[in-house]
Design a binder for these strands. Structure first.
Lengths: 263, 263
DNA sequence: CATTGTGAACGATTTCACAGCC
DNA sequence: GGCTGTGAAATCGTTCACAATG
């Protein structure tokens, strides 16, 4: 099913760069903490430290939103909270559905951050008939058959996919057909969606693999690497070359799980 | 807080750009799928489609690894699987610990992708004495008291933090003190770590907020007609974005106090 | 006079386009 | 002929440094 494709000049974000958008929630969290402690104003330096970025970047980011600071003083915390919330669209309520109520889906349903800031879990959906009706995080699990009606009845535009990889594309297609235009995908698959639909992906094993890369590099650093098995003969004609499947030196014969889907 | 100078000159990746490293796991997954279907070779175009990127980028990425393809033919699937696995450090076994066995921690423990590709869950750790001994995903939960000995005994260098935000920094400090040098953080907090320790962050509410931003823009477009030069609305395509890289960050004088906490 | 806001320099990443090779 | 590998160009993101200003 060739599909895939779909790239575009990326977000024509009308001003605000994508990288900045990705940091706004970070600033918002830091500001909310300050707000709860009734701190009235904050400098770019302080806020940057709290958010884990540097101050120049923060000021540049804010400059895309407008001039919300006061020279010589800093930023008004409450005002900034409001401005960023508005910019992110969090002043309105976003109903979301979570599809796939396994371990991960249940964890997501219980995630406090959902309810707390602009998001409301409209429904939990699972394909297993045995799950139907069972309460998870205070909501009854609904069967996949109801997916379309749930979406339209609640005007859901954001969907979270926490199904096994094999089911993700199908679920995605149904969500999109029913009107969802933003998807947060936890399944380890590349989803193909029509233009106009946004997909963000969260992938545990990818994060771990990136860590492993850096970890490996640290380890090798001590011995000034250059450990290329010089014998590498890319002469890809065929022939020699260690069998893939990599993975070596297991501790125990622990079932190496052929893993049909890297779940 | 001396100017939170905790930044490393950004990965001294010795050759391979960070952006490329972040995509290698994607390629690896696509290649593994091809391998399971016994596909012998693949072109950059096909593989790129399967991985959800464009072919020029993929070829450029591979060029940092070496010349592993054959002009006029493509790439040998098995060979590439091996090379990427090796580059990522997945030919060895990485023991990891998961700290915080709530909903999320349990979900992670059950995550098939852990065991399946180079990672082995060495232990599950929780601060709740009532949890101790209870089996989760086939492993008995261990108490936090044992954290240090577990790390050293198993030579763990990668830790996963799935605790509430308030406990994260403390857990992080103990992990690092015990020898962990890579951390995957699910708690919504900025962790401060000494130089040489890598932190990656996965934050659900941030991902949702980014989606909300784009969702809002789509909604607003309909009413406030965009004055984009092009007649057709050039909206964001189906860009799939992975969470931004989590770099180490300056410390935070505040205690914790994030607005949201995971289960 | 401390601090914002921002042009301009710099650096990283993506895309183009085509030479080189099988 | 088809496809890789890669310089060069284009784009995007970060950092510098300082003028503007409450």
């Amino acid at each position: 099913m060739a599909t895939g494709r779909t790239h575009r000049p990326a977000t024509r974000s009308r001003g605000i760069p994508e990288a900045t958008v990705a940091r706004l929630p970070l600033y918002l969290r830091a500001l909310t903490a300050l707000s709860e402690r009734s701190v009235p104003t904050v400098s770019s330096e302080e806020l940057a430290t709290a958010a884990g970025v540097n101050s120049a970047k923060l000021r540049k980011d804010f400059s895309y939103l407008g001039s919300y600071g006061t020279r010589g003083v800093g930023y008004d915390v409450e005002y900034l909270v409001y401005q960023i919330s508005r910019e992110l669209g969090l002043t309105q309520d976003w109903p979301v559905v979570i599809v796939g109520i396994g371990n991960l889906g249940a964890a997501l349903a219980n995630y406090g951050g959902f309810a707390s800031r602009g998001f409301r879990v409209a429904a939990l959906i699972d394909a297993d008939p045995a799950m139907a009706g069972k309460p998870v995080a205070g909501l009854p699990v609904r069967h996949t058959d109801e997916l379309e009606s749930i979406i339209t009845d609640n005007d859901v535009s954001i969907g979270v996919i926490a199904t096994p990889a094999g089911a993700a594309q199908q679920v995605c297609d149904r969500l999109v057909a029913a009107g969802v235009t933003s998807i947060l995908n936890f399944a380890p698959t590349v989803l193909s969606v029509p233009e106009g639909v946004d997909v963000r992906k969260v992938d545990l094993s990818i994060e771990l693999q990136i860590l492993a890369f850096h970890e490996q590099r640290k380890a090798g650093e001590e011995t000034t690497s250059a450990q290329e098995p010089a014998a590498v003969q890319p002469r890809s004609g065929a022939a020699v070359r260690t069998p893939a499947a990599g993975r070596a030196a297991g501790k125990g014969p622990d079932g190496d799980v052929p893993a049909v889907m890297p779940a």
